[in-house]
Design a protein around this nucleic acid. Sequence first.
RNA 1: GCCGCUAUAGCUCAGUAGGUAGAGCACUCGGCUGUUAACCGAGCGGUCGUCGGUUCAAACCCGACUGGCGGCGCCA
Length: 428
Amino acid sequence: MESIESILNDDFIGKTVTVHGWVYRIRSSGKITFIIIRDSTDIVQCVASSVNLGDRYNDISSLTVESSLEVTGKIKKDDRAVTGYEIQINDFKIYQRNEFFPITKDKSEEFLLDNRHLWIRSREFTSILKIRSTVFKAFSDFFYKNGYYQVQGPMMVSTATEGGATLFKLKFFDDDVYLTQSSQFYLETMIYSLEKVFTIAPSFRAEKSRTRRHLSEYWHAEGEAAWLHNEDMMQVEEKMIEYIISEVLENNEKDLKLINRDISKLENIKAPFPRIKYRDLIQKSKEFGMNLKYGDDLGADEEYNIMIHYDKPLFVTNYPEELKTFYHLPDPENPGEILCHDLLAPEGYGEIIGGGERIWKLDQLLERMQKYGLPEEDYYWYIDLRKYGSVPHSGFGLGLDRLVNWICNLNNIRDAIPYPRTVRRIKP
RNA sequence: GCCGCUAUAGCUCAGUAGGUAGAGCACUCGGCUGUUAACCGAGCGGUCGUCGGUUCAAACCCGACUGGCGGCGCCA
């Protein structure tokens, strides 16, 4: 048995091969039928003729799209075939003869989402999922290569990380628990032994967001490292993004072409990435056609207006403390600012990473928690980390689906994940 | 939470100053030995999202509800 990709070259001309897969297209003209067969690697045109197959010809010429089969035949080079070669069928085995496949050439967004379990077989989706696979692998590989350990936190938690309003609540025996929004705090507990850790885990946000860059369940890649400061962490992240993209370029060139991605834009993504302080960005906002004042948060429109001017990702640092949550370390040199960073992706995509240096001194953390009205009892274990051998440390959270969305230049984050969960979509 | 758009055949869509519902694709049958989401002929296919209102008459006008899509806020 050969993969389709492996037989599409001149070495196989004249040889007899067997491939198996699914009917991608089928066209019949009486005594000759063209069947395009698809497997996970590629597609190939196969020719069935009544002269070769005799009585069995009708069995194969009447097949329907997505029926599964195995064919054996000799390979011929032919420019008329979609991938340049074709198989002259002289034997075949049908595994399943389908009723008609529901997805045809006309398709609405809603229909395709309802039939996502079938739509993911499409060539575009297959390529996106291959790229996504590379992104996940490259993320892990990068951190393994840099001495990080992979760890896992719980998905069911009793406290919020970001804020109270966006948690999914569920019953846990007699108690209420929440689905995690971030594994950050649990990663922080592990740096005191492992020093450098990362995780890939789902995070859940009950925000009723109706946008093309939000999911209710998304894949969160997080890292946390002892002894690193904000700038150190940014250097790790830019190398990580550069590595992931270089791996995609190396392993998925065919897939990027199939989805019509402009590869030169990705080839340009090399560290270091530019950095700008929030207050400088506010000053510069007029150049980007906006009139922002200090204290304004960067919304989707602002990120877009900024990032269409950059061809590399951009770090925005030193946000005012009011714009971010309680655990960020205040900048001793710039009162009112914190040592944090967001990474905005180019081509208008916007935020893909949020990170920064964490407060590591006990009194400072308690003071900030009080300001935010957070109950110390619920966070006793997080507070304990500042009592026993506390050290400076930094971390980040990356939205892997957002990264895939950008790398594939997709229009909607839904198409960066096989089964998107949004406020309006829980099936299939 | 707020704003906008949308719902007609299995799928994509048209439809009318309010008067018995239409095309393409898919499917079935027939034809075709070089197709490229083939082509030609015939057939099959609808309680026009649901409920209510206006009217002699509603897919069409009005209201409510439900599903879906997009935008904002929030974030990754």
